[in-house]
Amino acid sequence: MNRTERISAAAVVVFGILVAAYSRHYLKLGFLISPDAGFLPFAVGVALAGLGALWFAASFRSEAVPESGKEGGGAGEADPADAPVPALSRLLPGILLVIAYAWLFERAGYLVSTVLFMVGWQKFVEREGWLKTSVIALLSAAAMYALFVHFLKVDLPTGTWFS
């Protein structure tokens, strides 16, 4: 297996320890016969740390036995040397757009943010022309309005910037 797996396994161990520490520090553990709020999170934290360690160990063992790659499906192909670097050219703008949508949603209202999101997506993720972009953006905003506000009467924000 590759380095990514090992780093992730180590991260799980650290995360488990943090969870256990938080539960011990901020929550009451109680006892086995009277578990309190921190009991389950503490146990889960300890379990995560242990499972992470097992995963870490397993990644070494499978390296020693290269044949195991074939039963793990595609896992064996991913070698640290030729691990395919994910293409960020579409992923990154995609993720940023969703975050921007969440940020704009209550501030600019659902209509404006929906239009901006769709314009952004067509432009930066799909690299479409302006005509197609504006048609898709306006149509989807209109559909959202018709469906959620007009038909389902969902109480959607109209935007704090405008009131």
Binding site: I99, E106, V125, P157
Partner: peptide, 30 residues
């Protein structure tokens, strides 16, 4: 995909928002 994907995102975002009416849930979704 270029249409289905963003539309799914919009639906799930509004769906999450409508449960409690808070934008925080859209962040959780992301």
């Amino acid at each position: 995909f270029g249409i289905l994907a963003p539309v799914i995102i919009l639906f799930t975002a509004i769906g999450s928002y409508s449960i409690q009416g808070q934008a925080f849930d859209i962040y959780s979704l992301v």
